[in-house]
Design a protein around this nucleic acid. Sequence first.
DNA 1: GTGAAAGCGCTAACAG
DNA 2: CTGTTAGCGCTTTCAC
Lengths: 336, 336
Amino acid sequence: MSTIRMVSKLAGVSTATVSRALKNPELVATETRQKVMEAVRQSGYRPNQLAKNFSSGRSYNVVVLVPNVANPFFSRVIRGIEQEAQTKGYAILLGDTQGCIEREQEYARMGLTSQADGLIQLDRRFPFSDDDKALAAAVPFVNACERISSDATYPVVELDNRGAARAMGQYLLHCGHKDIAVITGPPDSPIVRDRLSGMQDALLAAGLGLTAERIVQGDFSMRSGFAAAEQLLQQNSLPDAIFSMNDEMAIGAMAALKAQDVRIPDDISVAGFDNIEFSAYTNPALTTIDQPAEAIGRQAMRALYQLMHQLPLPQSHLVLPYELIIRDSTQQKVHS
Amino acid sequence: MSTIRMVSKLAGVSTATVSRALKNPELVATETRQKVMEAVRQSGYRPNQLAKNFSSGRSYNVVVLVPNVANPFFSRVIRGIEQEAQTKGYAILLGDTQGCIEREQEYARMGLTSQADGLIQLDRRFPFSDDDKALAAAVPFVNACERISSDATYPVVELDNRGAARAMGQYLLHCGHKDIAVITGPPDSPIVRDRLSGMQDALLAAGLGLTAERIVQGDFSMRSGFAAAEQLLQQNSLPDAIFSMNDEMAIGAMAALKAQDVRIPDDISVAGFDNIEFSAYTNPALTTIDQPAEAIGRQAMRALYQLMHQLPLPQSHLVLPYELIIRDSTQQKVHS
DNA sequence: GTGAAAGCGCTAACAG
DNA sequence: CTGTTAGCGCTTTCAC
């Protein structure tokens, strides 16, 4: 590995001149510049980015904390972050936390040790340990998808989850469904509560409600969606429709219903949330709420960039638009 | 941000002592150690990892090049890499290349500039630009999932793709299918060729073959699987079975078949490859080849670790076991 | 237009 | 057991 010193020797100039020739060629005489370039070529010199970063005090890395990369919704968000980061000269340090608090804290600490210049948290927890909390205030931090409940507030990029769930509720009601069941996520998640509130808004406005029995808890995995639907199937009657708080649980639920020969959408409507790519290809194709995952990622990265560079942040709470996607897993209720 | 110097002043010792008290406490007198620890506590000192890395000449970062993080198979491989990396003290720099050669080269260059200590390539291309090629020999590099065809050889972690496809072929033949169609990936991909060869092995052994018409090219996306199936539907007759080279294309194909009211598996069997989680939840559930994605990732990271630390590599070509997973999308042919 | 020198924060070799 | 010093590779004053 050749260093700037070797190049300077080869070219017969000082290291400062090499540095200038590469960074600000206009400050260097043409002839000198050519000597330097030739020396660079000969030696195969590549500036050591580690040294550059060290001396600038910036790593040009950003940690992205994600509960599970294998979740297609999150991986789309990450793609968005990554695209925006690359155009800005930043790289992504992937922090797949698997929901584990220790891993989360370990990654978050990178923000304190200059291994990363900022953090994007896609989960609902404030990722710093108690020990780090005080220092964490200095670390550029953005929250996306979820919303951390804490005293301190951070820029958030999210969806109008309540509005989206309300829209889905209104649509299902419009289909003639009155008995709607919901498969939720972890109840301490703000977005889960928002989506539940949204659905309740819609039902309430129609003079209906959600009984405790019809609220089944999942954990956003297909397996849990499957289990949730089985639970609903064991109840006295089948609901008219199931609203699942993400597409994967909806897909799990559809499999459970199909296993019991319940027809979708004839016997029951099923709707999801997120609009992952698979949802367009399920059988039947899944009605859902589209989240602009890549855009969420890009916006989160943009906000983080502003923070990292002490630039003004137009709005610290960004709400991106949802879209109701009607496919074949829901239909007008057939009154029997 | 407090530095080691501030701590040393606070504690009334030298920076070296602070460094020692933190790294090798046993080399420091108890009393001194306590003074240092107190100073650390008071100042909220966190060692600057950037400086540490710079001075050690190692970044403790590893670049993972992946064509598409949003592909669930790759994201599982990445999870495996990430798990293994974390236990070894390395972090993952995510290089989502989107199949774009420039992005690939940009990320690969990080290996030359000490931003990363090694690379794992999940795609089939040698990622360094021509300019960088000569220097690249010094960068620890591991190839997983795919196999780069080049003069130089690198550790590879992969599946017995040919054997797996052969097993699938034998199974489909065993079902009584004689007219088998294949949805491939990019034809210049070695694993695509392996899988094609494997299928041909099986057919040949049964005195059968694959006509050009029955080989339809996709690009591993659901959309392309959908299009491929449509293409097959336009041919004079329907094949007995479709073998898709990944699950996503199989899922796309199933959607296309269903749209034409072709029944699976009654009218046609469909099989995939990878065993992504969704495959267990499709309707009908997809027969496929299981690839141990996480294990592939872990092994790739382990090999890279050996390389980065100049440790011996037991075998530079690791072939991990596949498993035929028979579900409901394939069945014994009903002779009509 | 160019060189010398200091410094980024930390570790390690060497003295004492 | 602890302090001094040099050095990792690069950028950036400050002189000349």
